[in-house]
Design a binder for these strands. Sequence first.
DNA 1: CACGATTATATGTCTAGACATATAAGTCAA
DNA 2: TTGACTTATATGTCTAGACATATAATCGTG
Lengths: 247, 247
Amino acid sequence: MSLASDQARPGAAEKPTLYKRIRLDIETRILTGEWPPGHRIPFEHQLMARYRCSRMTVNKALSELAQADLIERRRRAGSFVRRPQHLSAVLKISDIRAEITALGRSYGYQLIDCRRRTATAADRARLGVSTAGKVIAIACRHSADDVPFAVEDRLIDLSTVPEAATADFAREPPGSWLLHHVPWTEAEHTISAVVADDRTAKALDIAVGSPCLVIDRYTWRSARTVTAVRLHYPGETHRLVARFKGG
Amino acid sequence: MSLASDQARPGAAEKPTLYKRIRLDIETRILTGEWPPGHRIPFEHQLMARYRCSRMTVNKALSELAQADLIERRRRAGSFVRRPQHLSAVLKISDIRAEITALGRSYGYQLIDCRRRTATAADRARLGVSTAGKVIAIACRHSADDVPFAVEDRLIDLSTVPEAATADFAREPPGSWLLHHVPWTEAEHTISAVVADDRTAKALDIAVGSPCLVIDRYTWRSARTVTAVRLHYPGETHRLVARFKGG
DNA sequence: CACGATTATATGTCTAGACATATAAGTCAA
DNA sequence: TTGACTTATATGTCTAGACATATAATCGTG
């Protein structure tokens, strides 16, 4: 229960700032279970005395822990170790080109189909818009070391991204183009599993009936739809990895 | 470019604190694209003048934006709107029982098999441990409104969680038991797609060859393995949803 | 005992300073 | 032109206070 045990060791490579040390001390006690969920953390004035610093310094450490949901702060009552409600994992979904090149593999891209049209009823439903503006529909394939990696089926709303009309999607994959031309979007991903149909199997060079991982991504920016994309990955070779810290 | 336009409106329901208003103002400008990636945010002393407050208040707002990766702060140079490198989505993976009851459906649980044994070579590989301690191997099924929802295949390392030996997994699902008895763990999820084999198809009441979404979760706590679990979901009906804000 | 009013207290926010430190930018010599 | 040195400056951290505010605990009353 004691907070002692951490005088600045002279051997420490580089001592972090004080508030970071306070934060790490408390975080360590929580993560090792020394302070279990529900445990009350020492009051700010106690930590002030313990670390011989001002209240603002302690407060900064505790505020960051509260932001990270490791503790809960309640007025008059104190700060308490939280028991996390849900396991939230951070799933990194990179731009496919970046993902492949980061793996040290050569990236390949083939445009299968690209057409501009007035949004059909199906297009509007998929984009979640009611007015029938122009859209671009793209089908393409990504490969790593000349092995098919994923097939992409995308719709871009030209009323939100008019510049897309002039982009050359035969040269640059639409995901990369959008990433550089429409930053700071919001998105929702839906992950599911299907078996490959004829068209998908052919594009991915797998057998019909093989499992595929499907990611549907719907992207918007300030309440305006940007794009809707469906990616098929060969399910037996592709993996999505999500790390998390929680309870 | 001007930062004006936000005098405290009398009609505003409840005015947030000043630093939150500063943070929201800047966040809005970034998210709407008014300040694109690379744009330099006004210096702290400029924001002090703009909002007529002390530097610490401005600093708190900017620090939080930096923590959220919306801006990058560089000494002597200033603060700049970041271009996010990767699309990181937050995937909420709840305890299955909690997930089903949250949907307003009735939760059902069937223990298929539960045995305690000395870890085999396969068990050790799966848990990532080298010594052959005791483990519990569990197979069970979760259902929602009496429809199979997921099948679970789990290994618990008894040298990390000795209390698990006394738990009654015929009554309580192991995921829920662990969540309440071993808080604050870390985990890695791997998501993939397969087609149902005989055993899985029977347990989920689907056809052999149907697609299944597979989640492998490997959980540890302070460098000690806790559990490894593989979940099969019927791929055509189950969806994983991940929201994200980024670029 | 139940319930409303009062009080004490821990956190939430803010100020007006301070010194430390990394580094962009300018200066000067080779 | 290039490289080394100097300087200016924006951020990083910290202090010793302050008042606001929500609420747990206490007290008093019916």
